[in-house]
Nucleic acid binder design. Structure first.
Lengths: 361, 361
DNA sequence: TATTAGCACTATTCATTAATGAGTGCTAAT
DNA sequence: ATTAGCACTCATTAATGAATAGTGCTAATA
């Protein structure tokens, strides 16, 4: 969005400008100043810092209007005005195209692609760690959802008489393991048969499909296997049971404490709660997987009350086939949206690239 | 350590007591009070709260002596006196036998044993989470050291032409995976041969041994395998290469912020650094694996400067065969050592029990 | 000789006050 | 429509003083 303004930088000529657009510029200046300095700017200072000539008094009028429309609030009479969540929303919505990611940031994120060959979890944790370091806020990333990823391979390993170690490898490159307890003492050979049966049968199917279809599929194949069948059904059901809820890595929580906006005791407590009980943030990350691009949740827009003073910037990452999870930043509503958004976007892109390259299809 | 004191609770008869022992009691009272209330206690108040009759003036003399011997410091004249790290050290060293773990705490930790069948990492993360919840401090746990654990099984799975997924299962029940890149395009069948060869050869050996002995062992077996050999050596070397440095889970960092002792800006910053760069804490956890029992590091005793205002209580956990890692609490030097120590000890015990039960030997 | 009472002294904390200053709102002039 | 000027508000800061909690020292005491 380009705003045309006549007479800028020209003291003498006062160009005609649409009031609306002018107040937008003022609003943006206020927001940007607040983002930078974390304290309200006065009409006088603003008048000086703004690009074109406008007296403090005029700016006061504009500010007054903006306050009336809900873009600004005063904490008390005669205090500077501070942007509301509505203002931030306007700001990000009307944001000119995201700026290019600075070379410096790209460089600092480059280690993400240097951890190829390591488990996906390591890549994620590397990425979220770097992102936290760069943004100086708290960052989160969700691990790939098991349900959507497709099976690459299953292994059943006999551990003891009554325990079998199940290893699931998904196309996305995620390895999950669990132990299942069985009553019968199967031989390793028998398990190998079941293993190859399950692999043949279910390779390339999503976990969800497998779980839903495990009965039908096996039943229809009845003629090929005999005593194997009953056991395979049982083992298979157990093996594919969803055991792990979505996980989430958090990094840089402490960063938030250094941020001036969270110095008040009450909001610190809120944040602790929000991170303690991870569900709310997890939900936002999940939501973010449904659509492409960067998602922005500003303060009060968040359903969860403890996050009302935070903004979340999230973006999903994927391999060639599926959206796997998402990564995001949790910071104060007055964060520097411009740079954070592009940094998150870039990180997600890097992540997708790295993971795709070592995905198994 | 039992201290015999005559005349306690008896105003009239002033029993003879060794001055030293009496001052110990005073010191302990001061420490315990400070642990509880986080603020210095005055001679007058102490005189009232102490078990036996002793005037404020006498207590002042004793306190003065204690200060001279380095057990107490005054932040400034006419402020109450506060225990030094030396005092805490005395306190924990002279502590009477650890109190039994309260039933309530046992109950709250019981979920640790309810996660059997899940990966070891989950058990650890559950334990450290609960510990943080109970102690209200930050808690850490190190994942099992790869080097000491012994091999249960290795699997090589062909992923693509040039990539092989290696899955290592240790006796301790830890599953590790990594991808290795190869130049030759091996068939899955060939990999199976290598797999069984490696399994036969190395099962029950520690990773360290395997890594060190992989040459000799294979060479001495030369007669049994032919072309397999060269590849097996290469693959084996790659597969067993140490790829992951010890990991560590952290929980409840935020708890520290609510603690009154860390409210000063400076010490918060220190803590952030300490957790950011995990090596120092990791080192203490590693150290703790060398000896049995609970380890206590008080403030200045820590090598790492950022931890000078913290105490760490750690204990190792193990399976039937090996010490695997350790778990610990990071809190202010004025923590309630009595209860924290026994809680950490109990948690480590629970952890050992749970992990032993699902270990593979 | 060890303990205690009493008193002088000191430093923190808290509430009050006054000065300062940044900022707005309104009105009249341009 | 814009601006200058002025009155007013409220937060922040520093200074003041009273109250408080604490020690150190000395002389009296058991």
């Amino acid at each position: 969005m380009k705003i045309k303004v006549k007479g800028i930088e020209n003291q003498g000529a006062r160009g005609k400008m649409d009031l609306n657009e002018r107040s937008m510029i003022v609003l943006k200046s206020i927001i940007e100043n607040y983002i930078q300095n974390s304290e309200p700017i006065g009409s006088r200072t603003l008048s000086k810092s703004i690009g074109f000539k406008l007296s403090p008094a005029t700016i006061r009028n504009i500010m007054s209007d903006l306050a009336e429309s809900g873009f600004l609030i005063q904490t008390h009479t005669s205090a500077g005005r501070v942007p509301t969540d509505k203002a931030y929303r306007f700001y990000v919505d009307s944001m000119s195209k995201k700026p290019a990611v600075p070379e410096q940031i790209k460089q600092k994120l480059s280690p993400v692609s240097n951890v190829q060959g390591t488990p996906v979890e390591h890549i994620l944790s590397k990425a979220v760690h770097l992102l936290a370091e760069l943004t100086k806020f708290a960052c989160v990333v969700s691990t790939p959802k098991q349900s959507v990823s497709r099976l690459q391979r299953i292994e059943l390993i006999k551990i003891s008489e009554d325990r079998i170690l199940v290893i699931l490898v998904t196309k996305a490159g995620v390895v999950r393991d669990k132990i299942i307890f069985v009553k019968e003492n199967h031989s390793q050979e028998f398990l190998s048969s079941v293993t190859s049966f399950l692999n043949e049968e279910f390779k390339n199917h999503s976990m969800q499909e497998i779980r839903e279809g495990i009965h039908q599929s096996i039943v229809s194949d009845r003629h090929r296997y005999h005593d194997l069948l009953a056991h395979a059904v049982r083992l298979g059901k157990k093996a594919f049971e969803l055991n792990q809820p979505g996980e989430m890595f958090i990094e840089g929580q402490m960063n938030l404490l250094l941020d001036s906006h969270f110095h008040e005791q009450s909001s610190v407590k809120s944040l602790i709660d929000a991170f303690e009980q991870k569900t709310a943030i997890m939900k936002i990350l999940d939501e973010s997987m449904k659509n492409k691009g960067v998602h922005i949740h500003i303060g009060i827009e968040n359903d969860y009350e403890h996050l009302h003073r935070c903004s979340l910037i999230t973006a999903s990452y994927r391999n060639k086939q599926n959206v796997l999870g998402s990564i995001g930043v949790v910071g104060p509503t007055s964060m520097d949206y411009k740079s954070i958004i592009s940094t998150v976007e870039y990180t997600a892109k890097m992540l997708s690239k790295t993971i795709s390259e070592q995905s198994y299809d």
